[in-house]
Design a protein around this nucleic acid. Structure first.
Lengths: 224, 224
DNA sequence: CGTAGAGTTGATTGCGTTCAACTTCAGTGG
DNA sequence: CCACTGAAGTTGAACGCAATCAACTCTACG
């Protein structure tokens, strides 16, 4: 299932504007499509670095094991995101990536990528930019974890998720792709606390929440 | 003060083994030396991306402003560290870097770097690895912020600092390069809490602390 | 209808914050 | 040499946010 041009699936993809494969430096690389199910792993921490991935459809989470058997979620991946950037420093992936819902993923073999990299300085520049952006993005997310209190963090998180889901709008609400446990883990709070905070925000009239469907009403920056 | 070869100062530098300039892909680039004082800024967030830096001697801290006037310290730089990696994604630096003590810093002009990058795929590979490593390093530091409780975080922090200071050993103890305020900020706790924790660790006999001079006694992994 | 997983609610505890006062230290000038 | 000053660090007391444990409800799915 290889292809030297942007693949057909892209034609109807709503995420092309922010997709690294479609409009980025990766568009010309040969790649395959894989369709993992919920619970599948693209790779696990410590595994040998064999491929890069780009998420076309669906969602995934990246976790770090931290030695102590506890797994900390460090990022949620959305369509357009590149996955596997953590593996360049070492010969192995430094985080685990698990699929959260049925997904379509472009897979770029490591050798393919490295050959292309040796020949294209544009690709190199693109990758360096991408890595730098990711460095900043993650930093920004997690620095707010200690600065802001839990409620503000949750608000910010929900706003971010809304943005990522913005391409599939259905009457002002959107669907979270992850469980409460995952959200709590990511935000660094207990599930019970998360539940209480959601209730609180609902009572304030700031959001409406039914299961994973969220509608944001009056979240402005003054409430942060 | 340019030079096309590893500069004289490197001859007596104790950090060459982990220095990106000395033994890395940057060694052949023309560069200058700057010697900023405590309190100086290499650059501030939002400023135009003009140069990359490598810390030879001294120490620095990187902060993120996060909008809310609060500044969060996201990394302490030690000799051998590369500074400015946050600027590749944008045209501007995404964090501020302030010098903590009199330092010597290699400065590599942006144009110089980009020209070299276009011609050397080895440099590109090196930079990608470096960025990937940094991504993982920062992630690991800050994921422990929410996983572990304050005391464990402090222990881990002190151990890390000891490693960075390991090249200047003086009878088992070492000198912290940053203030309590900075440490507290970095660890995400209040200064008072930090003070109490230091006292606690001292009473346990795990460390000895006098001002910024720290001696680590019995810190094993069981206490984490 | 029954089960398992996901999510919620309540009661209690504790870690870390906050505010305020105090101490220590380094630098400066009389 | 000592007194003054301001920054850095410490200590104490009270409060509060979030964790923990436990029981309960809801939902999806067979």
């Amino acid at each position: 299932m290889n292809s030297d041009k942007p693949i057909d699936i892209c034609k109807h993809c709503p995420y092309t504007h922010s997709c690294k494969v479609h409009n980025g430096v990766l568009s010309k690389l040969p790649k395959t499509i894989v369709c993992p199910e919920k619970g599948d792993h693209l790779f696990k921490s410590e595994e040998a670095f064999t491929a890069l991935y780009v998420l076309c459809q669906g969602s995934a989470k990246a976790t770090l094991s931290d030695g102590t058997s506890m797994e900390k979620i460090v990022q949620f991946y959305h369509p357009g995101d590149m996955i596997g950037l953590c593996a360049f420093g070492n010969e192995s992936y430094q985080e685990s990536v698990e699929i959260l819902s049925y997904s379509r993923v472009f897979k770029i073999e490591r050798a393919t990528f490295e050959n292309a990299l040796a020949e294209s300085s544009a690709l190199a520049n693109g990758m360096i930019s991408l890595l730098s952006e990711n460095l900043v993005r993650r930093q920004r997310n997690h620095s707010s974890n200690t600065l802001l209190e839990a409620e503000s963090r949750l608000i910010r998180f929900l706003q971010d998720q809304q943005v990522w889901s913005a391409s599939t709008p259905s009457k002002g609400s959107f669907e979270l792709c992850m469980s409460r446990v995952d959200i709590a883990n990511y935000l660094g709070i207990a599930v019970e606390t998360l539940s209480r905070l959601m209730k609180k925000l609902t009572q304030k009239g700031l959001i409406e929440a039914q299961n994973r469907r969220i509608a944001i009403r009056n979240l402005d920056f003054s409430s942060m």
